[in-house]
Design a protein around this nucleic acid. Sequence first.
DNA 1: ACAGGGTTTGTACGAATGTTCAATTTATTT
DNA 2: AAATAAATTGAACATTCGTACAAACCCTGT
Lengths: 252, 252
Amino acid sequence: MDMPIRPRKTADALRPDRKADILLAAEKLFAQRGYHAVTIRQIAEAAGVPLALVGYYYGPKHELFHAIFEHWSSTIEERLLALKNVGLDPQDANTLPRIIDAFVGPVLRLRASSEGEYYALLVARELYHLQDETDRVMRTYFDPLAMAFIDALQLALPHATRAQVAWVYQFALGALLHHISDTRVERLSKGESKQGDPAAAVLLADFIVGGIRAALVPGPVPVSLPVPLPFASRPESAPSSPKLSTHRRPKP
Amino acid sequence: MDMPIRPRKTADALRPDRKADILLAAEKLFAQRGYHAVTIRQIAEAAGVPLALVGYYYGPKHELFHAIFEHWSSTIEERLLALKNVGLDPQDANTLPRIIDAFVGPVLRLRASSEGEYYALLVARELYHLQDETDRVMRTYFDPLAMAFIDALQLALPHATRAQVAWVYQFALGALLHHISDTRVERLSKGESKQGDPAAAVLLADFIVGGIRAALVPGPVPVSLPVPLPFASRPESAPSSPKLSTHRRPKP
DNA sequence: ACAGGGTTTGTACGAATGTTCAATTTATTT
DNA sequence: AAATAAATTGAACATTCGTACAAACCCTGT
């Protein structure tokens, strides 16, 4: 019969590491519900600690958020290292697939692991609304990573401009992040595919490599149709369906 | 000298349409900061109306959120119509590009328009955290659209399974949505590319078409590298940098 | 002018939020 | 064992939140 082993601060200490518990709980809740939808009380309850302990260890809420990314900053170093280990030979046709493999591989493994799944989800979902704290996290931790990958892609695609490479990098990143936070594919495929199927990883890598090659063909005109003129019209107002509430709606 | 013309409720009414003003302000703020980060008071202030008027017209906050998507539901009908106008001929090599054009075109035009830019941004950013209200919006408005596009792709790619098609659809959607809410490409390209450049639209369509074709080649083995085994380790804890606050941090 | 319904507004309620503090307990060092 | 430091806790603080309400306002048709 094994005891409920919990992480310790030091090897011989018998006290549970409640600081780490708080970070874990915050990571999970922020990833699932979003930063502003999560209260410190919910984090404390999920971590099994009293409310005041959260503030004691991490201070204000936004610093707790920042601490999550600081905690995982080493994985970014690893991703940069994996990229450096790719031989950047513009002549080798496998250079681009290798870059993309270094791009998607570590992220998908992180998402599939029990340790990093919520951190990966958090990155995919919560860094869009650029405000004070998300912008700081983005610039500090992820801009250098993106720059390194764009530089590598630029070497593998000498005929493309940096603007083009930056665009396709964002396309690839979008495909990757949306796949990570995807919860619809099972429904949309009518049950034929499941979340986290490793077959999707191969498909994603092929999608990105093929997409980059197709978008940045050295020749002049690619395969797409001509772009039409922009248009958009705001639809007329229409009332929404009612719900149970004491609220008395205005008559139309 | 032109007067500050504002939308009217009816053609002959001289009163400004404050109900529409509220919806506009909510749309913009929700898109920029996220649902939970926006207060009803901020919406009222941005719309130039007293606080109580928001509740008078839209009731609870989540109904105001829902009303935005109800307001734009006609654009989804238009996207479905644009898809139906695509001749779904599996023999025609231009069928896939035409589907993708019907996929990205209307969205990018909406994003580029002054009327729909924030709605497009809202869709791209705010529907990830599936909870009560976002899940309802997703299933009601966007699942039918996704199903229609997946059906069309299935027709254009008879050799692929529905699971594969659902996956690449999600990849394409991710690329599109991330491009829509992108604010980094200017920074990452070192100023060489600007947001909303129509050249990116062509690039995106080519990326998606090429990506789908590369991922779903009829032959057996595609171009990607073999998938390595999963691994991930949670890094050891490291303290974060301090900030100005009355909070006294614990000594390490 | 009158009446009535839709519209507008100031205000206030209870609940929930982030944050802080003093006090207590536990661990470590002297 | 005594002293010091760290960890832990309950409670409370001032704000801010969503929501509701009643009174006032405006417009239209009688």
